[in-house]
Amino acid sequence: MSFKYSDEVLKRFRNPVNAGKIENPGGVGVVGNRNCGDVMHLYLKVENNVIKDVKFETLGCAAALAFSDLLCDIAKNKTIEQALKITKDELVKELGGVPAPKLHCSLLAVDALHKAIEDFQKKK
């Protein structure tokens, strides 16, 4: 099967601005497994219930990297409640759509955020 990525996906893939780790993160979300493809780690820094910083480390395809990077931008400066309302459709729309076989990568990003928030709430 062949398909084309949108310019927005390629831009984020080429120059992700949120790649990296946060020292002593408030919460960490780990999703995916190498066996079936992508692995995503998401790190949160939370202050007064607001996500102050988000970073990611992802092993995956261009879509997985682009969704990771975009999610960080969208989640930043949101309250925990607001962040939990981020949907995969919102991410897909923001990237100008992705080829059908890559839609699951958006779910992976949302899952990573939910897991990171869960981890944060546990630690609180």
């Binding site: 390629l10 893939f13 080429r14 190498r34 493809g37 092993l59 995956g60 395809c61 261009a62 997985a64």
Partner: peptide
């Protein structure tokens, strides 16, 4: 190891 082929392909294409 620990890299996705598609990401290598697209980066090489760049």
């Amino acid at each position: 190891k620990n890299v996705e082929g598609e990401s290598i392909l697209l980066s090489l294409d760049d």
